[in-house]
């Protein structure tokens, strides 16, 4: 599930980067240049238009696509999502439209205390919200900026180093977790 979400996100990023470099291309031209199946490309473009990552404009018989510029709020969200694990949590919550703690733990294979830290960070930064559905707590994405941040974000060398440090110290547990 996570792999699929990452793959889809990578395809969207590919389209986004291409559109940023070549603004105003229409669907067929995009398909030709990206060598992507038309239905798949349409699906990703629709998704990005819905999430306000790109916008379309009618020009005669063509529909042209352009990328939206980043504002200050977008930059804040991107900066909060610099760590890989945080992006993975968000990707799962985005795909499922509400993920439970146990589900996240099962997919990511993280110790509960570490996952708790990550979720607390995301809720503190207004990326995800905690919702009570019956007796269960689910985590949902707060706004569309998150989807945009996931597509626009490009990891730097420093981000990778910090990811490795966090992986080493946050995800290695020498004690048995409390039941």
């Amino acid at each position: 599930m996570l792999k699929e979400a990452i793959l889809e996100n990578n395809r969207r990023r590919e389209i986004f980067i291409f559109l940023k470099a070549n603004p105003g291309l229409h669907l067929r031209e995009l398909q030709r240049r990206l060598k992507m199946p038309l239905t798949s490309l349409e699906y990703h473009l629709d998704y990005m238009v819905r999430k306000k990552i790109i916008y379309r404009e009618r020009d005669g018989r063509f529909t042209r696509f352009y990328v939206m510029l980043l504002d200050e709020e977008d930059k804040k969200v991107i900066s909060a999502l610099r760590q890989k694990r945080l992006r993975e949590i968000v990707l799962i919550a985005l795909g499922k439209e509400g993920a439970k703690f146990q589900e996240l733990q099962g997919i990511l294979g993280l110790p509960s205390s570490t996952l708790f830290y990550y979720i607390k960070y995301l809720t503190d930064h207004d990326i995800i919200i905690r919702m009570q559905v019956g007796a269960e707590t689910v985590y949902n994405i707060r706004n569309d900026r998150v989807a945009k941040a996931l597509i626009v974000y490009k990891p730097s060398f420093l981000d990778n180093l910090v990811d490795k440090a966090l992986y080493t110290f946050m995800e290695t547990h020498f004690r048995k977790p409390k039941e």
Binding site: R82, Q83, Y117, Y121, L158, L161, V162, A165, L166, F169, M170
Partner: peptide, 18 residues
């Protein structure tokens, strides 16, 4: 530098001690 940056991003006691 790397560990302190990790602390600054996560802001938790575990990374603070380290």
């Amino acid at each position: 530098g790397v560990v302190f940056l990790a602390y600054l991003r996560m802001k938790n006691r575990k990374m603070l001690f380290i």
